[in-house]
């Protein structure tokens, strides 16, 4: 039967729509013109400006500090939570636990941001990198827990029973059996937590306070208060880093299999 061409045409248009802004952005990062409608030759001037900007470097440093701390905490908490959710799946406590872990995945970011800001203000906690870390962990835990839970779904617990029968204590079981077998899930969760932390703007904006600026906050103020061509260069670099990281992780997971 002849299939309609219409859906294919829509799909092609949608893909063009997806790529157009990104292509223009990358092209403009090499365009020396300040207002970028006309091409004025290839130039790396915006990249040089970017590398000479101390604010960008400081923001990058803050972003990495936050992301590393957030990844470490949420991997431990999230993996533990996934284990609890899987092992005691039927209990009423785990139903509450699951609802709580699921909530950050559906609650709009702005509500989490404002709620946390109010909690910190009410408790008198000074805003800064620490409050950013606390806030990021709150949503990253859910993503780690869900990723590890997915891995646990096809995990055979008789392996743990066998290790216990053979006389292994819990510490040893965790180190030698659970963690190695769950590693792909944990690594995927860690990568996700890191990426989400690096990219988060809305929640960070609410809980950052005046002193602590991360890269997205920096980009936002660059968008709001001028310096567009530098953002093009920064975005192109970020895009290159993410694409490389994702391709590398895909290759890594493929070669393991």
């Amino acid at each position: 039967m002849r299939r309609s061409r219409f859906p294919v045409a829509v799909t092609a248009a949608v893909l063009a729509f997806f790529y157009l802004p990104i292509i223009v952005l990358v092209a403009n990062s090499f365009n020396p013109a300040r207002f970028s409608s006309r091409w004025q030759g290839f130039s790396l001037v915006w990249y040089r400006r970017l590398f000479e900007s101390p604010e960008v470097w400081q923001a990058l440093k803050n972003t990495l500090i936050v992301a590393v701390a957030v990844t470490a905490i949420s991997v431990v908490l999230g993996t533990l939570a996934a284990f609890a959710l899987h092992r005691y799946a039927a209990s009423r406590l785990q139903r509450v636990h699951y609802t709580l872990i699921y909530a950050p995945l559906v609650v709009p970011e702005i509500l989490m941001g404002i709620g946390l800001l109010m909690a910190f203000v009410a408790a008198g906690v000074p805003l800064g990198l620490v409050t950013i870390i606390l806030a990021h962990v709150t949503f990253c835990v859910s993503f780690v827990a869900m990723t590890v839970l997915g891995r646990l779904q096809d995990f055979d617990f008789s392996v743990v029973e066998a290790a216990r029968d053979l006389g292994a204590g819990w510490g040893r079981i965790v180190r030698k059996v659970l963690v190695p077998m769950l590693m792909p899930g944990i690594a995927a969760g860690a990568l996700l937590a890191f990426t989400l932390s690096v990219d988060d703007f809305v929640i960070t904006f609410f809980v950052a306070g005046p002193g602590a600026t991360t890269l997205p906050l920096r980009i936002y103020s660059m968008i709001k208060f001028g310096a567009p061509p530098m953002i093009n260069a920064l975005s192109t670099l970020l895009l290159a880093v993410t694409v490389t990281a994702v391709l590398a992780s895909r290759r890594l997971s493929r070669s393991k299999r």
Partner: peptide, 24 residues
Amino acid sequence: AEWLVSLPTLAWLALFLVIPAALI
């Protein structure tokens, strides 16, 4: 054992998700 492994996330989310939501 169940409480022990569930408590860290439960406490964290109570503190940074439930209380902020109620505060709104």
